[in-house]
Amino acid sequence: MSRRRQIAAAAAVVLAVAGCFALGRYGAYLVHAVAISAIAALGLNLLTGFAGQISFAQGALVGIGAYTAGNLGNAGWGAGAVLAGGVAGGVASVVIGLPALRLRGLYYAIATLAAQFVLEYLFKIVEPLTRGISGMNVSPLVLLGRTVASDQAYAALSLALLAITWAGLQRLMHTNVGRSFLVVRENELVARGMGIDVVRVKLWAFLVSGFVTGVSGALVAFTTRLATPEAFSLQLSVDQVAMLIVGGQGVWAGSLLGATFVVLVPEAIQRAGEAFKAANLLSASREMAFGLLIILFLVFEPRGLAALLRRLGRALSRLVASRASRASPTPAALATSRYPATGGSREKAH
């Protein structure tokens, strides 16, 4: 990224964070819901899009972050609680990831599914740490001696953390560890041949991805104010994978686009359809649109919204350009309109 673009991006973030305070509570809630989901989706994107491992345990990892941060936050840890949520998420992710060193593709996915169920069960019965099914009440986050209470403040905080995470991950990809993620994803044998310690690289991917997901979990705890096992169920894991698919794997913007889509599209359908007053059908059509869109994306645009938007942008600028010069697009322009493949692992279990 050029220096100028960096400054522009930083300014945009500052503006967006400041803009949160102009929103109403409902608007602010939507912003932090999107931002928090996007942070976890960034974690998943690192794992799936850049390191080639699928996970259905995101829900449980968010839960681990939430319970850790909730407990420590209640004990007065403040900002440290958010960090600790991340660390706990990272450690748990490595533990879940260990079998992945021996399994791949589908089998790893099923292993994470098993981990999701076992953790969900533990959330329910380890009452001293989680308060069990009743759920754990979480006091508001205390940051620099001040209590963060309003939705607007949480929206600003979540957006800021999203930007930091994003920038951090982008940085990471320019380090040796980050570059080796890509090599391992494309071909493990080649990676070995290049002298990359594949096991270590994978463990790094699990650690970082889990850390990011855990931070998102910490924010969930402080914004929800109640951590219950039901909130960290398989449903959340599926939603996370859906965000990745719809947004686009292997592109950081895909995580934000996917989270925006999964959180806001049902709400938009709801608002648009409310005029008809059929609450029953409204929810059904909301679900139907959601399922259908997932299928359509996978079939027609597997690289997700990120690729779709980019194509759309190119088409638009081409249109503008051709209007301006009154010339038809050159073959070269058509050829570059295809987004370079950065999709996930293409290997099958068999």
Partner: peptide, 15 residues
């Protein structure tokens, strides 16, 4: 990829 196929069957379930 295998993830996409898994997800599409989940999409069918939701639908």
């Amino acid at each position: 990829p295998v993830v996409a196929v898994m997800m599409v069957t989940l999409g069918l379930l939701i639908l």
